[in-house]
């Protein structure tokens, strides 16, 4: 094996009754890669992501995340990944440092390790002076910055970002992507969903899900070439228009 894969999905499938939400998807993600996971609402992204995070059992197929089987070793999977959603999942009535302390503790970090790392990460995001600030008093952009920092505080092999930039202003959105780049540069694999198609261009590779299946997977450059499109928005429109699952 010349390349190290941190996500391997083989025919991963999830059925709810006779509805197949995720339909035999096969793909893999390399270490340190920024992987964009795109699709229309209802295409099956969230269901697929929940399986990869060990939160939902596949009906069929296989998945290995961070070296662990998502069906039989789901607890191990959870310990080795980070997760951040649009809702940020920070505790508003805890201080900045208390949030880091809490999540560090949950992921089994030692007190000493937590306190050493705390100062380093707060410095890196320029929030040392906010250490004792209640999270609810932070501006939205800072909360986002902190939420991402919390999600990779335990140094996971991979971080799942579910629409992390929804609703933030255009400058903050771009700063957030710089944070993503530096995490990827430090070896953390980034698995991200977004509805902003300019952000799809920032990914190393993207997949586009339509009706539970992966319809396209490649680098943004190759996808643009293949679909003779000027941008990922056009690629997405071309593929997702074919969807038969309506309305979602």
């Amino acid at each position: 094996m010349t390349e190290e894969y941190v996500i391997i999905a083989e025919n991963l499938t999830k059925k709810f009754g006779n509805f197949t939400a995720v339909d035999h998807i096969t793909f893999s993600v390399r270490k340190g890669e920024i992987f964009g996971f795109l699709g229309a609402n209802g295409a099956g992204k969230t269901t697929a992501m929940r399986m990869l995070c060990g939160l939902s059992h596949p009906s069929d197929g296989k998945g290995i995340v961070a070296g662990y089987d998502i069906l039989h070793e789901s607890e191990k999977v959870k310990q080795n990944i980070g997760y951040m959603s649009q809702k940020f999942s920070l505790y508003e009535d805890l201080k900045v440092w208390e949030n880091l302390r809490l999540y560090g503790g949950i992921y089994g970090m030692k007190d000493k390790e937590i306190s050493i790392k705390m100062d380093a990460v707060l410095r890196s995001i320029d929030m040392q002076s906010e250490k004792n600030t209640m999270v609810r008093d932070l501006p939205l952009g800072w909360k986002q910055k902190l939420a991402f920092t919390v999600s990779i505080f335990h140094n996971p092999k991979i971080v799942f970002l579910d629409e992390p930039t929804g609703g933030v202003d255009p400058i903050t959105r771009r700063r957030f992507w710089e944070q993503i780049y530096s995490a990827a540069a430090s070896g953390i694999t980034v698995f991200v969903t977004t509805h902003y198609m300019d952000e799809a261009e920032y990914c190393d590779r993207v997949s586009i899900m339509v009706d539970g299946k992966i319809k396209a997977l490649d680098s943004p450059q190759e996808l643009r070439k293949k679909y003779s499109a000027s941008g990922m928005d056009e690629v997405f429109q071309k593929l997702a228009r074919e969807a038969t699952r309506k309305g979602d």
Partner: peptide, 10 residues
Amino acid sequence: TTGVDPVSRK
């Protein structure tokens, strides 16, 4: 249209 995919937004 917040949280809505590009096709549905259109």
